[in-house]
């Protein structure tokens, strides 16, 4: 399947979903006005991927800022990963800056709500 690559903008994150190379990454900043519109194609891509996932999928969430509108879309991504985890191995790596306890607690919240293996990485 074709990879999904989106370059970062001033208010949307960089997205790299490349099954062939086994790289899945959402990074930088996510504060768009219309998060729904931005994440819809990403969710669409994941729905396709869910049909035939790699034996192992490691998704890196390495975000600096997330607005509440995006946080709701991120959990949709994770719920899809939860589905994928039912038929293959899935790990969510949640990166956060050592000083950023808010980002850490957002990750912990997701970990509580979603049945996917989480790894927390302080940077």
């Amino acid at each position: 399947m074709d990879p999904l690559i989106l370059k970062e903008t001033e208010d949307t994150p960089e997205i790299i979903f490349n099954p062939e190379e086994g790289i899945f990454k959402i990074s930088k900043i996510s504060v768009p006005e219309d998060a729904f519109q931005f994440y819809e194609p990403i969710l669409g891509w994941l729905r396709d991927y869910e049909k035939n996932p790699n034996p192992e999928t490691i998704v890196n969430f390495d975000l600096e800022y997330v607005n509440t509108a995006s946080s709701k879309q991120l959990i949709q991504i994770m719920l899809l990963l939860e589905k994928i985890a039912m038929k293959s191995k899935v790990t969510i790596k949640w990166f956060y800056e050592a000083i950023d306890e808010d980002m850490q607690s957002l990750g912990e919240r997701y970990n509580k709500l979603v049945k996917v293996n989480f790894e927390f990485i302080e940077v």
Partner: peptide, 23 residues
Amino acid sequence: YYDQILLDFELGDSKRTGLGFSD
């Protein structure tokens, strides 16, 4: 409440997330 709203996708259109004030 935050968790509950986070998972309430009926609210999740592009205009409203319902999380702003709680956040």
